[in-house]
């Protein structure tokens, strides 16, 4: 037993009133806190509305159109918001979890408590993941149900597209969460910028490189393919699979890339938060 262990035992037995719960229990307390905070804010309700936008649109279209909706719609249109949902949902749920704690000074309430920052980090991350994944599942589920109701045939790859979307959500949520440990504000904008603008910027740069250098078209395609394996492209790939176009790479490659991306950002965020001085 170290001197710290002995002193800690003395301190608690001398007082003998409350004993700290295990760290897993503290993680659950932080998780519950964050879920309650979500429940009291407007963002989950807005994003549920976003997830339900396509089914609602289909329903309205059904009322307004003369013939059957399945003649007008194909699966790609039913899931057209998928890439934006993969960008927006994590950005809103995870992109300001930590930054708001620092900006609103609520971190001053929790950080002096007998809770490690790792516990705080994991609890909040779990809540952001829960909500992001749940709303993605809800949106996807509603799309499938509405397709079934209106007789729109979905390709066999739909289940795999759902899996890809969930991995994409995991990766982008982890990134948004890590950014929220760095920026006091603007992490939502930064996430959206990275997910939506970054691929366009990279492709534009590559196009210029292609035009001013002698690289072959095959090399350019190869580089573009590698870029497309990043989680920022997962939404488009999943949408392509729902449209029956398959995917440029094996789905497992996207899942591995998304997992690696997510874990890397979780570690980065954890490292930054542990170093943060208030």
């Amino acid at each position: 037993m170290t001197s710290n262990d002995a002193a800690a035992a003395d301190a608690v037995t001398a007082r003998g009133r409350y004993e700290l719960p295990p760290q897993a229990g503290q993680v659950m307390s932080v998780y519950t806190l964050q879920m309650r905070l979500y429940a009291k804010s407007w963002t989950p309700y807005l994003l549920i509305l976003l997830a339900a936008l396509i089914p609602i649109s289909m329903f309205i279209l059904d009322i307004l159109s003369d013939g059957p909706v399945s003649d007008i719609l194909d699966p790609e249109i039913v899931f057209v918001l998928l890439p934006y949902m993969i960008a927006l949902i994590p950005a809103v749920f995870a992109g300001r979890v930590l930054s708001s704690e620092f900006k609103n000074r609520t971190a001053y309430l929790t950080f002096p408590l007998p809770v490690t920052r790792t516990v705080f980090f994991i609890g909040k991350l779990m809540a952001a993941m829960t909500l992001s994944l749940s709303i993605m599942l809800l949106g996807f589920g509603l799309g499938i149900v509405m397709s079934d109701v209106y007789g729109i045939a979905l390709p066999d790859d739909t289940a795999m597209a759902l899996m890809l979307s969930l991995f994409g959500i995991f990766a982008i949520t982890a990134m948004a969460y890590a950014l929220s440990a760095v920026f006091k504000r603007g992490s939502v904008a930064a996430t959206i910028a990275i997910v939506i603008v970054l691929p366009l910027v990279l492709e534009f740069i590559l196009l210029i490189v292609y035009l001013v250098t002698n690289i072959s078209e095959e090399t350019l395609d190869g580089i573009l393919d590698i870029l497309h394996i990043m989680p920022v492209s997962v939404g488009n790939v999943a949408l392509g699979m729902i449209a029956g176009n398959g995917s440029p790479f094996a789905p497992a490659a996207y899942m591995i890339a998304a997992t690696a991306w997510g874990i890397a950002f979780i570690l980065l965020g954890w490292f930054l938060m542990n170093r943060k001085e208030l």
């Binding site: 301190a11 700290l20 760290q23 001053y108 007998p114 490690t116």
Partner: peptide, 21 residues
């Protein structure tokens, strides 16, 4: 050893904000 050191401590540091909602 923050967790154990703070076990028997109650703090108010720099007027923290409680969650306003």
């Amino acid at each position: 050893d923050h967790r154990r050191a703070m076990e028997t401590v109650g703090c108010v540091i720099e007027t923290p904000e409680c969650y306003p909602n």
